[in-house]
């Protein structure tokens, strides 16, 4: 029976946390990425400066440092705010929320670059045609821009996603019960670190392999309209 010294279920719980964390962070990252890309391409100078600072600074600092900064610093900030508002008990941030926020915030910067490139690749005439039909800017965005930019965004989006799944392993350092941390606990109790970390590595390998196949399928599907030599 494959029970991993009785820790199989515990690590599977951690795997579930990792998966949830990765998918939720992806949602945050895509949202921030689209906002960042629109900011970078906007006509307003302050917006452009803010988004430029966001993407440059975030991409220039290691994930781990940002995570520690946001985790410890955010904890302090929330408590100081709560104290200023007259709330006297200690506020503990949920590590899952902190993890999602942090990873989403970091990869939002990478996504912003991806989406910016994709938006620029859609020809301007398409957007003008939309406007000439009397569509509002939001309609042009949703009906014309998004369906066409997906094709250009997908390869780089896929890379970001693969890097992001692997980055979720770092949240174990700030105390979120993902599979790496669960494996660490199990390893400490049984003195079998190799076995547990290898199992976790294998799980990550499954995640990345499945993702690669899904992404390849999506890329094929979204480039149906493209003529190939």
């Amino acid at each position: 029976m494959f029970t991993l010294y009785g820790y199989f279920d515990s690590i599977m719980e951690g795997t579930w946390v990792t998966l949830n964390l990765a998918l939720s962070s992806l949602g945050v990252a895509v949202l921030l990425g689209i906002l960042g890309a629109l900011g970078k391409l906007s006509n307003s100078r302050p917006l452009r400066s803010i988004t430029l600072a966001y993407t440059t600074i975030i991409r220039g600092i290691p994930d781990l440092v940002l995570m520690l900064l946001i985790f410890y610093g955010g904890q302090m900030l929330v408590n100081n705010l709560a104290f200023a508002l007259g709330y006297e008990e200690y506020v503990d941030i949920n590590p899952f929320i902190a993890g999602v926020g942090t990873i989403g915030f970091i990869f939002g910067a990478y996504m912003a670059e991806t989406f910016r490139g994709a938006i620029m690749a859609v020809s301007k005439g398409q957007l003008e045609a939309g406007a000439s039909f009397g569509m509002t800017r939001l309609q042009v965005f949703i009906r014309i821009l998004v369906p066409q930019m997906i094709r250009y965004a997908l390869p780089s989006f896929g890379n970001n996603w693969l890097v992001m799944i692997k980055a979720t392993a770092i949240v174990s350092v700030i105390g979120l019960d993902d599979m790496v941390r669960k494996a660490g606990i199990a390893a400490g109790a049984t003195r079998k670190p190799f076995t547990f970390y290898l199992f976790v590595a294998f799980n990550y390998l499954i995640f990345t392999t499945v993702s690669t196949y899904i992404l390849a399928w999506a890329e094929r599907r979204y480039s149906i309209g493209e003529r190939r030599a």
Partner: peptide, 23 residues
Amino acid sequence: VYVFRGTPLIVQMFIIYYGLGQF
């Protein structure tokens, strides 16, 4: 290449640093 690109660096490091002592 497949294994080292498909798993997180931190896990690789843990396997080597904590893991090898198991044997």
